[in-house]
């Protein structure tokens, strides 16, 4: 299965190449199998609450999503993975995973 740590390293290494990197508070990464049994990686891009609006235009989200997808695909190679990229604000994410989430 795809390495969780390798994916996080890839994202961290290329963070500054993403649109509005200052808006990114961090990410959460999950690896596993999706609903159809394909190897999959889920990335939640967590955005600082006061900077969400920078990333929120659909085109910006598309660019960020596409770049994250490419980074994860590269990190997972040669394993082919489905990559699911979602967005949350920091307060939303902490409300779900716990206040001690640190990015």
């Amino acid at each position: 299965m795809v390495g969780h740590a390798a994916i996080r390293e890839q994202l961290a290494a290329h963070r500054d190449e993403l649109p509005f990197p200052a808006a990114i508070a961090g990410w959460d990464v999950k690896v596993g199998r999706d609903a159809t049994g394909d190897a999959a990686v889920w990335v939640w891009i967590v955005l600082h609450d006061d900077l969400v609006s920078q990333v929120w235009p659909l085109q910006t989200r598309d660019e960020m999503r596409d770049q994250v997808r490419d980074l994860v695909t590269h990190a997972a190679a040669p394993i082919e993975v489905q990559v699911y990229v979602r967005f949350r604000s920091e307060s939303e994410h902490k409300g779900i995973v716990g206040e001690d989430w640190a990015g």
Partner: peptide
């Protein structure tokens, strides 16, 4: 995939966003 999670994965919490 999101539909599958929405319909069947009770551990998954969706935000409005």
């Amino acid at each position: 995939q999101a539909r599958h999670e929405a319909d069947y994965d009770l551990t998954r919490e969706f935000t409005r966003r």
